[in-house]
Amino acid sequence: MTSLMDHQARETVGYSFSESTAGVKQHGFYPYTDNGGSTLGITGSDFAILAGDTRSTSGYNINSRMVPKVFKIGGDDETGEGANIILSVVGFAADGTALKERLDTVVKMYKYQHGKPMSVSACAQRLSTILYQKRFFPYYVHAILAGLDEEGKGALYSYDPVGSYEREQCRAAGAAASLIMPFLDNQVNFKNQYIPGSGEGHALVAKKPEPLPLETVKGLVRDAFTSAVERHIEVGDNLQMVIITKAGIEEVYHPLKKD
């Protein structure tokens, strides 16, 4: 990932076409652009949330203020109805769309062939395979997949661009991941928090992470994004939150700062 990013690092602003080197004019084509933005997922005992901002950028330009990054997978094409899996993609938006379309097709084909919806764990494994199949020309995205597992508990899987994946309680991805992730460590997994008065030094008992109620998690997601908007120029405009429970999928939008 870093080696691909180096191209951007040198130019600061991410052009699709690399600048010609001094002397001989060359026309190099760089097939990726970073469209910025950030996504975030958190699970609870009976729900999962995926959220993302809706800004799309290239370099210092804002392409659009309304490009959602979270998608319903395997549902109706127009309404998303019938879906039981959600996917967020951040990085190169064109690859994100392509990946979402492919996974959506795969999940639908599964249902037609097997006569039952695809489980989240099966979909998670399949997504990893899809990503790895393009190991040497990757989908340039950081994907997060969410749904409810066989026991009805919130399930969340995060991916790197070439398909390494892991089930987690929470994950931030994209431009502001480095800002949001330590906040989540602290507020969701209670890292560095101890039970007051439980002892001194090594005897201190660490506060155990347990699934948080939906309203608390919604609050954390909004806090995480308002914070990221404040300090990262590629994040802003609107917050898209997609919440999956056994009752179905709920999608809400909140305004974020547009500066």
């Binding site: 800002l179 992730m181 560095n192 995480a224 914070s227 990221a228 404040e230 300090r231």
Partner: peptide, 25 residues
Amino acid sequence: QLFGTCEGLWEPDLGPEDLFETISQ
């Protein structure tokens, strides 16, 4: 990382003990 955690945890007019907890976390 500090921008993220500070922006998320800090609030105005914290007393000395609360400020200690906030900056430490």
